[in-house]
Design a binder for these strands. Structure first.
Length: 449
RNA sequence: GGCCACGUGGCGGAGUGGUUACGCAACGGUCUGCAAAACCGUGUACCCCGGUUCAAUUCCGGGCGUGGCCUCCA
């Protein structure tokens, strides 16, 4: 069956046909590395990992190129570096912050069962490409130099705004920010700006004497160009990036290369709330991936994320995660799951995923395989979806104490002192220990989620 | 204010113009000293108001609610 994907640009679900089936190309906006990634950041990483796996399955692992950038030049990074390492030169502090954060990010998403992208380009290693694009845009009349800045001229692109479905006139009316005096038009955005002393700086393009640094959007145009070409198949990210980030990427890339589209499919994952409220530090419901991994296995977090379709809003709740633990534990109970490393996607699951990544449906199909007793298909499909191990509770227990209590309970049972036996079981239960009396007279136990 | 999503049983969530989604939880049963696990069984829900229709949760219009973007943000 064919793969159908929803395209934000055309607002329709349609058949996916790669420009070149021998090289399917996907770009996803990656993290700005200045702090631990939060659970909202995890959503696109997991969602597009599933898509990456699906594309590899359909076109062959060697025929899919997945690029996810690392933004390592940004005001927030500078601020964090200055704050954490005030005694170091800023550039050195920045390097420490970005490298450390990148490692943390990798550790976190590895634990979530995500494959590494084919390429993870860093913005600071693509400044030459950014400058080349900026030069092209100026030469083509789509950008201009003003007071050491280079600005993209939004009115120079008649169909600017198609992705976010807003017309130039509408944006005119909605302008709320104070307009910098050097801008020809309020909507124009920065491609290059001067660096303040001490800030990261590179020789400027377009004959600007003072050193500068790139604007926010140009890096993605540059890195996708370098690694995927002038046009490619899929561009993904969070729905909040539609405007202005992706809109501006499109403007930069299309006006540089005179292409009808930048990517054939624009995919955006929905937002995440926590316990029914917007996640924010002030509400105290802000969770980093790292914090959640302390309490829950990564595969449980992954499963919980995939229970909701990627375009739907997701309400991240403690109850939901606990339910995911139980469900995933049941689905991975077959001993064959742990022993086999074979990956394969069962036809029913493939069909669900091929319908715009319908992961809730796919999970229902996993339950159907489980119900039918088709454990081989279930196990290999789970692995293909990135679930590599059965969830283990993160509760810490004193195993010696547990076995002592269990021995005492077995003794009490033998003596038919059932009141004492039940009391001991309750005590263990309070510690999060679930008992299972086997037929052979022994007692197995496990730690609850 | 403009633009855009979403609103299904206790919870998650698929899907459909007329037939049981599925899962979790709960409840009943088998099993057990009692439990747990496992297995069997039990749930007729689709925000509101109009319209179209023989028939709407499903299509159309309006309303209400929630969230997102318009400024850094997945």
């Amino acid at each position: 069956m064919e793969l159908k994907l929803y395209d934000t640009l055309t607002r329709e679900k349609r058949a996916f046909r790669p420009l070149d089936p021998a090289r399917v190309r996907m770009y996803v906006c990656g993290p700005t590395v200045y702090d631990f990634a939060h659970i909202g950041n995890a959503r696109p990483v997991i969602v597009f990992d599933v898509l990456f796996r699906l594309l590899r399955h359909r076109y062959g692992a060697g025929h899919v190129t997945y690029v996810r950038n690392i933004t390592d030049v940004d005001d927030k990074i500078n601020a964090r570096a200055a704050e954490e390492y005030p005694s170091l030169p800023l550039n050195e502090a920045i390097r420490i912050v970005t490298e450390k954060t990148e490692r943390q990010f990798h550790d976190d998403v590895d634990a979530l069962g995500c494959l590494r992208p084919t390429v993870e380009p860093r913005a600071t290693e693509h400044v030459d490409e950014m400058k080349a694009l900026i030069e092209k845009l100026v030469a083509a009349g789509h950008a201009y130099v003003a007071e050491g800045h280079v600005l993209f001229s939004v009115p120079s692109m008649p169909d600017y705004g198609r992705l976010s479905n807003r017309s130039l006139e509408e944006m005119e009316a909605g302008a709320r920010v104070e307009v910098a005096p050097y801008k020809k038009d309020a909507k124009d955005f920065v491609l290059w700006k001067p660096s303040k002393p001490g800030e990261p700086a590179w020789p400027s393009p377009c004959g600007i004497a003072a050193p500068g640094r790139p604007g926010w959007h140009i890096e993605c145009s540059a890195m996708s160009w370098k690694h995927l070409g002038e046009m490619f198949d899929i561009h993904g990210g969070g729905i909040d990036l539609v405007f202005p980030h992706h809109e501006n990427e499109i403007a930069q890339s299309r006006c540089s290369f005179h292409t009808p589209v930048m990517a054939n499919f624009w995919m955006h994952n929905g937002f995440l709330q926590v316990e029914g409220e917007k996640m924010s530090k002030s509400l105290g419901n802000f969770f980093t991936i790292r914090e959640l991994l302390a309490d829950w296995p990564g595969e449980v977090l992954r499963f919980n994320m995939l229970r909701t379709h990627y375009r739907q809003p997701i309400d991240w709740t403690l109850n939901g995660v606990a339910e995911s633990f139980n469900t995933l534990e049941a689905l991975t109970a077959d001993p064959g799951f742990a022993s086999s490393k074979v990956e394969a996607i069962a036809p029913s699951v493939l069909e669900a995923l091929s319908d715009d990544l319908n992961t809730p449906k796919a999970i229902a199909e996993l339950h159907a395989l489980h119900g039918k007793g088709d454990m081989a298909a279930l196990n290999t499909t789970l692995r293909a979806l990135g679930f590599s191990q059965r969830p283990q509770s993160r509760r810490r227990v004193d195993a010696q104490k547990v076995s002592a209590l269990i021995d005492a309970r077995l003794a009490a049972r033998k003596a038919k002192n059932f009141k004492e036996a039940d009391r001991l079981r309750d005590e263990l239960h309070a510690m999060g220990i679930e008992l299972e009396d086997k037929r052979d007279g022994t007692t197995a136990w496990k730690v609850k989620a």
